[in-house]
Write a protein that binds this DNA or RNA. Structure first.
Length: 868
RNA sequence: GGGCAUAUAGCUCAGUUGGUUAGAGCGUUCGGUUUACAUCCGAAAGGUCCUUGGUUCGAGUCCAAGUAUGCCCACCA
């Protein structure tokens, strides 16, 4: 029975229903997939922050991952794609702090720790709901039954377990060191959480005893008493090792001159003083020479008592007064007002970072891991370089391997404690012992006994994210297990799905996240977290600008889904995208793919309306015309190509789409279906090709294909089998002949357009090759011409492929066109003859190439003859 | 300062290991269309493949230098 579909595909009418059916089917959960599935395929979703709403970055990531998941599912693998969200410590705390400040004019201290955390939890629950709904709208085939959250009990236990393990292995230590401090967030930041912003600030040159020193930050200079000069600098050679009494901001100081190669003789006066407490470079020098580290700015950004009369003032704001005071003392040599330098700022709130010494928890990346013979750094490098247990991480595109190695090689110890409330509380307890250092307890639960207090700080959010590939796969019913080993051994998902198959994420978080997952996982499990890293680019606007609130050029993916449908949005984000390169997105592009989705709908609409019975056709029906043969051959080509593009070692989504698009619209709809209207008995082959197409498109455009498939079968398209290459029997029908007809038709259409003829009635042909009568008849039908036996002198020759024919378009009418064509042909022939006359070409080029060139020359000559 | 990309039609992009007359989509122009789809069909115009030099019988493709744009890292006391 045939079926009548609506004229246009309306995504809004289908998507919600289809997604619900998928969820109800249970097939997002690998445990429910039908059939034997010996191979596993897994991806863990990079957890969106629990702060907010879906943006295009999420949308494109979901599109890529869903294509992989659906493709592998169709290929018969047991596919797990695991969703989740991240508590995003600083980001979330900032959002909620702002909200409370705006709505209630209160600080988090006003509320207190417990109440504030309750508010954050409430906020997170709300945004998690938003995210869940929005992720579904993209069509993402995620296993929601395994949804995780970084603050889930089992995941938190994993965090604490790993912390303790690292502490016991002495890979985590507490130390007093210089750290990046954000005075606004009132917390430390990791090195890569610091961003740089170019800024013009005055640069001051001060008279410091025998030398002139330069600085952009006079407010840090109170305690400077070490002068560094280059050992080979002739100007200062005699001063090395000597002391000077120097008049300085708060009275005289004793300055010592030290020689070190880090002083650049070319720069300024070649002499500098150092501020160990507030500069990373100076801190390292101070370590090297065992110098005193004097803290001048405190955690609130205020000057300490070292600053004398300026103590207690905000460091930044006190700068002017300090400079004025120094000016009054005649200490200023000159001021450069045009100085431009990079100011380090907090990546979350944009506040200027204050490097200062502080007691914090660190991960030691250079220390040898007990029993492993290498450091965390070494382990992380090897995972990508040579592999671990014969499994190597493959990074796509490969250029990011170099970036990874460079970053990892230069990695410093990782500061993991944060002075914020939202996050995993550091599992460390202290008990004062009267004098000196307190007793320390590290464990999963508070120690028994009196007087223990837990560390106030929380862990860097990336500490828990770094465990994501395996903390999510552990048995969540963790209370059953007393030990870590027992827990690991009884987590079947971990066995089945780890290492995960692909980590698909943006190149912008390769350091934050990808590198840290490698570091932590190789340490904790002694295996890699994923076999492949696919790094997608950023989504930008049509001008290539980053989408941002201030520019107002942001595109809301949900609005685009409402307008054009999820399938169209997915396609428009993937076409033209190659790993590691940014992609431009704009309305017209999405609209174009909306049109395509509608085309696919109408192809089906036509076929469903025309066939006698809609049914599943598994096997290719035998061809009974040259068009049939042609389309089956084309289908085979496209199956082979698309399979190759979607396979894990290629992951070329863009080319897969372009290939399918041309086959679907150009070959199938415009050529084959049009032809099939004039032939009999096409039901089965039309249905067959359509069904193969729906399967091929399904990973890319899941909604429309599933909606259409619903007219064919009760079974879900998402669990069908991926098309195999069709075994084509040799028949009397030559597909090449249909291709010739297409080329001829195109040529005749072109002539008609040039001659300004709307309709032409006749064709007469002579043939270059043996030619069946049917062939001509088809051509006449295709080009809307009438076939006659005799040609007349003034008719125009048309020469394509194996066919030469004469059309009753008067040569005079298209004289210009013909002359131009002749001229071009003569030109080609000349070039071709020249090429073939070149002995070196004939001698050096491969024989096949030379033969091809010869053949080409003959063709040109033949064509020219025919025109004359 | 160090490094990595990218540069092809008006726009967005393809272009395999060097070897047809460099392609697609959108846009533009012309023509068609009671037909599954005006979210359609047919056709055309449009290119100094950033510049210069090199390798080669042959370069959009390989090499060098330059220009432009973008990004990453380091950070200037």
């Amino acid at each position: 029975m045939s079926k009548e579909l609506p004229k246009n595909y309306s995504a809004a009418e289908h998507e919600e229903r289809i997604y619900r059916q998928w969820e109800e089917s249970g097939f997002f959960n690998p445990d429910n997939l039908p059939g034997k599935r010996p191979e596993n395929f897994s991806i863990v979703l990079p957890p969106p922050n629990a702060t907010g709403i879906l943006h295009l970055g999420h949308a494109s990531m979901l599109a890529y991952q869903d294509v992989m998941a659906r493709y592998q599912r169709l290929r018969g693998k047991k596919v797990l794609w695991l969703p989740g969200t991240d508590h995003a410590a600083i980001a979330t705390q900032n959002v909620v702090e702002k909200k409370i400040s705006k709505e209630e004019n209160k600080t988090k201290e006003d509320l207190g720790r417990e109440e504030f955390l309750r508010r954050v939890r409430e906020f997170v629950a709300g945004s998690q709901d938003t995210i869940r709904t929005q992720v579904r709208r993209m069509g993402a085939s995620l296993d929601w039954s395994r949804e995780r959250y970084t603050l889930d009990e089992a995941l938190s236990r994993t965090v604490n377990t790993v912390f303790k393990k690292m502490y016991d292995d002495e890979l985590i230590y507490r130390g007093y060191r210089i750290v990046n401090w954000c005075p606004r967030c009132h917390s430390t930041l990791a090195d890569d959480e610091v961003e740089y912003k170019e800024q013009k600030t005055p640069f001051y040159y001060f008279k410091y005893g025998p030398v002139i020193i330069g600085t952009a930050r006079p407010e840090t200079k109170f305690a400077d008493k070490i002068i560094i000069v280059h050992p080979d600098d002739a100007r200062y050679k005699d001063m090395i090792g000597k002391s000077f009494t120097v008049p300085w901001i708060e009275g005289e100081v004793e300055a010592v001159v030290i020689a070190d190669a880090s002083a650049d003789p070319e720069l300024g006066t070649g002499a500098m003083t150092i501020t160990p407490a507030h500069s990373f470079v100076d801190y390292e020098l101070a370590q090297k020479y065992d110098l005193e580290i004097v803290k001048i700015i405190d955690e609130d950004g205020n000057l300490t008592e070292v600053a004398g009369r300026f103590a207690g003032q905000n460091a930044q704001q006190a700068r002017a007064a300090i400079v004025e005071a120094m000016s009054a003392q005649g200490l200023i040599d000159r001021i450069d007002e045009e100085y431009v330098h990079n100011l380090s700022v907090c990546y979350r709130c944009g506040t200027a970072i204050e490097p200062l010494p502080s007691r914090q928890w660190f991960v030691d990346v250079n220390k040898e891991i007990p029993g492993r013979g290498k450091s965390l750094k070494r382990l992380s490098l090897e995972a990508v370089e040579t592999g671990l247990n014969d499994k190597k991480i493959d990074i796509m595109p490969a250029k990011f391997e170099k970036v990874y190695f460079h970053w990892m090689n230069n990695l410093h110890d990782w500061c993991i404690s944060r002075q914020i409330w939202w996050g995993h509380r550091i599992p460390v307890w202290y008990k004062d012992k009267g004098d000196g250092e307190p007793e320390i307890f590290v464990g999963l639960k508070p120690p028994t006994g009196e007087g223990w207090r837990q560390d106030e700080d929380t862990l860097d959010t990336w500490f828990s994210s770094a465990l994501w590939t395996f903390s999510t796969l552990l048995d969540q019913d963790h209370t059953k297990y007393d030990t870590w080993e027992e827990w690991l051994a009884n987590s079947p998902d971990l066995k089945d799905f780890h290492p995960t198959s692909v980590m698909e994420t943006g190149y912008d978080i390769i350091f934050f996240w990808v590198a840290r997952m490698i570091l932590m996982t190789t340490y904790v499990l002694a295996e890699i977290p994923f076999e492949k890293v696919y790094l997608h680019g950023l989504v930008r606007d049509k001008q290539g600008r980053k989408m941002s609130k201030s520019l107002g050029n942001g595109i809301d993916p949900i609005a685009m889904i409402d307008k054009y449908g999820a399938d169209a949005l997915r396609l428009s984000m993937m076409v033209g995208a190659t790993p590691g390169n940014d992609i431009r997105l704009y309305d017209e592009k999405i609209e174009g793919y909306r049109n395509f989705v509608n085309k696919l709908w109408n192809i089906s609409r036509y076929i469903f309306g025309r066939v006698n019975e809609i049914k599943v056709i598994d096997k290719a029906p035998p061809p009974n015309s040259i068009a049939d043969q042609w389309i089956l051959e084309k289908l085979n080509e496209v199956i082979e190509k698309v399979t190759g593009y979607l396979d894990s070692d290629k992951l070329d989504f863009s080319n897969a789409i372009v290939e399918l698009y041309h086959f679907t619209w150009g070959d199938f709809a415009d050529k084959y279906i049009e032809r099939s209207k004039k032939e009999e008995g096409k039901d089965e082959i039309l249905l067959f090709i359509l069904q193969q197409l729906l399967k091929l498109w399904h990973p890319l455009t899941p909604y429309v294909t599933e909606a259409l498939w619903g007219n064919i079968s009760d079974k879900k398209l998402m669990i069908q089998a991926w098309p195999d290459e069709i075994k084509l029997q040799k028949t009397k029908f030559n597909g090449r002949e249909f291709q010739d007809i297409i080329d001829m038709t195109s040529e005749i259409n072109s002539l008609k357009a040039k001659a300004g003829i709307a309709q032409t009635k006749i064709v007469k042909a002579t043939y270059k090759t043996e030619f069946i009568a049917e062939y001509l008849k088809i051509l006449a039908e295709e080009a809307r011409l009438e076939y006659v036996d005799d040609k007349q002198e003034h008719w125009t020759p048309v020469d394509v492929g194996h066919v030469l024919m004469f059309v009753d378009i008067d040569k005079q009418q298209i004289d210009q066109h013909l002359n131009r064509e002749k001229k071009e042909l003569q030109e080609y022939i000349k070039n071709q003859e020249k090429k073939l006359a070149n002995k070196e070409f004939v001698a050096n080029a491969p024989a096949a190439v030379v033969a091809k060139e010869r053949h080409k020359l003959e063709e040109y000559q033949q064509k020219l003859n025919n025109l004359n």
